[in-house]
Design a protein around this nucleic acid. Structure first.
Lengths: 111, 111
DNA sequence: AATATTTATCGTATTTATGCGATTATTCGG
DNA sequence: CCGAATAATCGCATAAATACGATAAATATT
C-alpha cells in the first residue's frame, strides 16, 4: 500500500523530492561536506570521519552517485568521489526556484 | 539496526536533514504549493487537489505541522493550515548556507 | 435532536531506508 | 604469486515511511 504515487505529481516535484531525499539523512550531508572540503576525491577517509561502518558509508555513496550528485572513479584499490557540480547547481537552482515560488505569496494574513 | 545514528552528527546537519525529509515527498511539496498559492488556510481543498486519500493528506499535514513548517488552527468543523513563514525562512537560510558552504570549494580539479 | 460535513486518529499492510557483519573483488606491495 | 589493503556487494535484521479504510470527534445544518 505504500507505493508512493509519484506518477501523480509533477516531474519537477519528483525531482525536488528525490534531491531532498538525498539530503534527508545527516550522514549524506556530512559526506557532501567532506567531499566539498577536500574537494579532491576521498574514499576511506569518509569512513574514518563518520561514525558509520564502511559498508554503510559505501551505501550512502552509492545513493549519491546513483542520483548523479557525485561522481566516482576507481583509483587503484581506492575509490575516488567528488561532487558533480553541474548536478549540484541544477538542484540548487530548482530548490531556489521552489522557495521563490512559495514565497511570492508571503506576508498575507492567514487563519 | 536501522536506528539512525543522528546523535553523532551536528545539530545543524540534523536540522537540515529533518527539513529535507519534509520535502522528500512530492505530496508534501505539492501541499506547500497549494498552501502558498491560496495562502489562506485550506483543508479539504488539498484532498481534492491531491491524488491521495483524506487520511493520507491529513498525515502529511501533521508531519509538516509537527516540524513547525506550517501552522494549523481549527475553524469550525474545518481545519485551517498555512505556511509558517518564519520557520520557512529559517530553513531556507540554512539551506542556502549549506549550499554556499559546499560551493566554496567548487571548480577545483578532481579525480 | 438528528443528520451531515469535515478532519483527526487508529489499525493494518506494505514498501523503503538504515545499518552492520561477512564476503567478494580488485589492486598494490613484496 | 601471496598477503595486505581498500572498497563494493550480499544477506539479514530492524526501523521508518507511506497509504488506505474504518472509525471517532467536533461542529454546522436542518
Amino acid at each position: 500500500m505504500a507505493s508512493a504515487k509519484t506518477d501523480a505529481f509533477t516531474q519537477t516535484e519528483q525531482d525536488l523530492a528525490a534531491f531532498a531525499k538525498l539530503l534527508s539523512h545527516p550522514a549524506r550531508i556530512a559526506i557532501l561536506k567532506v567531499l566539498a572540503k577536500h574537494n579532491a576525491c576521498i574514499c576511506g577517509e569518509i569512513v574514518e570521519v563518520l561514525p558509520l561502518a564502511q559498508s554503510t558509508v559505501s551505501q550512502h555513496l552509492k545513493e549519491l552517485k546513483n542520483a548523479g550528485l557525485i561522481d566516482g572513479t576507481i583509483d587503484g584499490p581506492k575509490s575516488c568521489y567528488c561532487i558533480n557540480w553541474k548536478a549540484f547547481e541544477k538542484f540548487n537552482t530548482e530548490f531556489n526556484s521552489l522557495f521563490s515560488t512559495l514565497k511570492t505569496q508571503n506576508e498575507k494574513a492567514c487563519c
